[in-house]
Simulated assay, not measured.
Amino acid sequence: MGKIAERPETGKLFFDFRFGGKRCREQTALDNTPANRKKLENILKRIEAEITLGTFEYHKFFPNSPRAKEFTKQAELMRTREAHDTPLFSTFAADWLGEMNIQWRRSHASTVEGTLKNYLNPHFGEKEVGCITKKDILDFRASLAKVTTRSGKHLSASRINRIMTPLRMILSEAANRFEFSSPYHGIKSLRVPRTDVEPFGIDEVKQIIETVRADFRNYYTVRFFTGMRTGEIDGLQWDHVDFKRRQILVRQSLVQGRLEYTKNDGSFRTIEMSQPVMDALNDQKKATGNMEFVFCTRTGGPLNHNNVTKRVWYPLLRHLGLRKRRPYQTRHTAATLWLAAGENPEWIARQMGHTTTEMLFRVYSRYVPNLTRRDGSAFERLLLTEFDAKTDPSKESD
């Protein structure tokens, strides 16, 4: 156990403790007074606690000490020795991807594969996974901010974070397996600006449904009044439409041309059909009832959402003079229309596939000013009532 002692020749206090198998004495400029002793004893407690936890860094407490340089050099040599026992980043990443594939949807695995191929392996592939430093990571992230897309725009903070996530996971797993400290520790994700939803008003919805080409009228009616995601409606099959109970069973999603499990467990849900949706699906059954998919091509195959967006959706918005918005805004529209109609928020959350109502109030409430009377009007009425009663005796109760 360390101690605080006095040098007789100077009367100054010094630290006396053991670290790394060596006795360490570090001089201070403080006189031997009770206050100074207490101050240094508290520092010594911190030092010993960090030594016990294995987090002590000599140079942080004694930056000018020769011992600091000695211990820092030893730590670097030790880390380098350990790092050289680790595989190349590209090799370890390939093994890690193979192990993780079984847990992921095919679309997510494909995205991670693309991130490794296009970004991570070109930069880190030939480095030993244990030799990658925090500076390497930060330099890489800074380089991503300079990358431009085909449209000439820089990568967004959200996109950069998605690229960095597999890197963080790979380094964390490697650190656990090869027993070194992950260099990613302490690096926070970039702050992502909040994006605003842009739902359509009921008049705009009516205009779109009345104007869209006839073979897509039922499709957009169902999109606007169920809040289904693109993959969910494109992957909807007649087996999952229950006309008797007036329900749509969301059990799968079309992702990159393949049917997969829903986005998450909450998305596995049952949607109640309103009358417009019921009518649209009954009408659609006349056209595609003998096919597997509810909305499909002439040959019965599933729709390609990119083609539909480019050839039907965007031209329609331009024709109507409406602001260009992604088809996903039909989902936001369903939520705001339900809220504006006064539907129970818990019921709406279930229809949307949300496990709680938190997102509903956080994302959509501003489009419905009187939702749960949170616009201040109830408070204003209370004040008016109370002040009127006090200023007008005729309004006071007997």
Rank of each mutant, 00 (worst) to 15 (best):
L281T: 00
S274M: 11
K310A: 13
P345H: 13
Y364H: 07
Y367W: 15
R269L: 03
T270W: 01
T355E: 13
W313V: 00
Y314D: 08
Y328M: 01
L360D: 03
L281I: 04
N264I: 07
Y261H: 10
Y261N: 13
K286A: 07
E343V: 05
G300I: 01
R311D: 09
K324R: 15
A349E: 04
V363G: 05
R362Q: 15
N370G: 15
N264L: 12
N304L: 02
T372Y: 04
R331P: 07
R325N: 04
E358V: 02
E272T: 12
L322T: 02
Q351G: 10
T297L: 08
R350P: 06
F361W: 14
A340H: 11
T297I: 04
Y261F: 10
R318K: 15
L320G: 04
E292C: 02
T372P: 00
R374S: 04
V308G: 03
F268V: 02
L259V: 09
P302D: 13
T330E: 08
M352E: 04
T333C: 07
L303W: 09
K310N: 15
L339F: 06
R374D: 06
N306F: 13
E358S: 08
S365L: 05
R323I: 09
E343Y: 15
Y261G: 10
S377L: 13
D283Q: 12
E358T: 03
E292D: 06
T270I: 12
F295C: 00
T288I: 01
Y261T: 09
N370I: 03
L322D: 05
G376Q: 11
E346L: 10
